[in-house]
Design a protein around this nucleic acid. Structure first.
Lengths: 296, 296
DNA sequence: CGGGTCTTTGATTAGGTTCAATAAGAGTGG
DNA sequence: CCACTCTTATTGAACCTAATCAAAGACCCG
């Protein structure tokens, strides 16, 4: 919780204002922020079939920028809009009766959030920017009326909400059935895949969230997360240096259920390192070249 | 898995046929099953503001009956309809790569399920009847076209889907943060509340699911569930006899976070039993005798 | 540089799983 | 109707995973 956090209602006007006037105090990030997106861009972002018939440039959706640590919406705040991530990283959290945070998701490019507000007309969760963010505002009222005109849009909405539900179900399943190691492994895999989709390296990336936030998301303590990452490093599945993660053996991460007993770990690590260093002693499995940061 | 299970597609025609002809082979349950519901009945069931303008009796939705153990839909099956529970109890499950079931929900009267199929046009979960059930079929195509004419209906759909999402979020939060005892306690409370809503007793009811299914739902083993129920019984919060549960102290269940040390249990149990029997010997301390939160 | 947050690592403990044995129902067929 | 089987539930004991408590190092930012 940084002291710079401000309720979203205040923020929004403040930031819109800054954007509209192309404030000169920008740091280079806000300047390249788009101000409006049309329907096609929006559908592309959401990875849903684009409404072909709709080329109208009249339907434009406004962007907003948030800085690291700022709150997009809080629990109990009146719901009026959904948000789509254009760039940046966020977390959504639930706060329990004792003020403990429970991380629900880490929205990033192409993700929709705020859906939980539809039912009660109030957001039931809180969204916080983990980095500087560029979001697209989707005023719910405007959206539904738009849906009356364009069928595809309505379907798109159902589809995205359904996708969210499936995601949550997968989460429940993971929390209910998998070991700590398997959870962390899958978390890394899904991050890696998301980064790949976004055009970043899937082999080397920085975590945008703390160990505490990861732990909360995975139903673990921060110590367990840290220890598990260290263990993965030890057996040569990944490299870890603070927030920087290097993926070495994604297949093992994908299928991992339980860690091998620690007695056999040193051998493992040595083997993996040889493979990673391309000094193969025997037939090398394909796709073991991890040190390529550049892509798309 | 009873051998009487049949894929839903076959079942549906089979059972409709039986219903339409009021088959004489019915056992008293199927005979009282309704065949059609109108829009108002449907909205009432879903606990959403009824579409007032729509009194048209032309929009009718068909009922289907399923018997205990029958499958309503399976994973991968083509999605075409949503289901609303008119009566009976079900479970929805995910099956992992090794065939292990993960229970996701226990739909009962007024609940909607099948939503997870919208996104990929295939159901991502499986729904099984835990008792004889009367369901209302909501063909998705028919529903969306209907939504074009009646705005309220569309909103209702968004609302219900949003509600489901919030429910899943609460589930994630519970699995991520609460102890085994707290999970079981909350499970009992929510069941009690649901039974009350349905007009049944909130104090005495039968579980429709096995310990294994409860455990899967709560992310616990069946032994832990059984032990926890026994412990609750021991300290006088509930009575347990196989599937029959009697709720004695719902407030304690609601606020329970951890069980008192077993050494002090016998005293507790004695006290609760006296209270339940209305023969209180002295003023009971107001909810601070062990680790539980102050009631909101 | 110093105070704060974040991370790593160790030692210990406790909550929950696993394995195992028994008992209680429910259903089936002779 | 009873024996037989299969599923479900209960309970105990040993084990183990992950939480808790604690301490020290790394990093960041003013």
């Amino acid at each position: 919780m940084t002291p710079t956090q401000t309720p979203a209602t205040e923020l929004r006007t403040e930031i819109n204002h800054a954007s509209i006037h192309s404030s000169s105090a920008d740091n280079g990030w806000q300047r390249q922020g788009k101000l409006w997106s049309n329907l096609k861009e929006l559908c592309d972002l959401l990875r849903i079939p684009v409404a072909s018939s709709v080329n109208d440039e009249e339907f434009l959706f406004q962007h907003v920028q948030f800085k690291t640590g700022q709150r997009i919406h809080t629990i109990g705040q009146t719901f009026d809009a959904l948000y789509i991530v254009h760039s940046g990283f966020l977390k959504t959290v639930l706060i329990d009766e004792f003020g403990n945070e429970q991380v629900l998701s880490f929205p990033m490019k192409g993700d929709l959030f705020g859906v939980d507000g539809i039912h009660t007309k109030r957001y039931s969760s809180e969204a916080v920017a983990l980095s500087n963010c560029d979001l697209i505002i989707l005023p719910f009222k405007k959206f539904t009326t738009l849906g009356r005109v364009h069928v595809e849009l309505e379907h798109a909405m159902y589809s995205v909400m359904s996708r969210e539900l499936v995601r949550e179900q997968a989460m429940v399943s993971m929390l209910g059935a998998l070991s700590a190691e398997a959870r962390v492994a899958r978390f890394l895999v899904s991050l890696s895949e998301r980064f790949a989709e976004m055009g970043y390296s899937s082999k080397l990336f920085n975590l945008r969230m703390t160990r505490h936030e990861i732990g909360s998301y995975l139903g673990l303590t921060l110590e367990t997360v840290s220890r598990t990452l260290s263990a993965f490093n030890e057996i040569g599945l990944i490299t870890v240096d603070q927030r920087s993660i290097g993926i070495i053996d994604i297949d093992s991460l994908r299928t991992l259920r339980r860690l091998p007993p620690s007695s056999s770990r040193s051998k493992q690590a040595a083997r993996k390192l040889r493979e990673a260093g391309l000094m193969q002693t025997k037939v090398p499995p394909p796709n073991k070249d991890w040190d390529q940061v550049a892509s798309a």
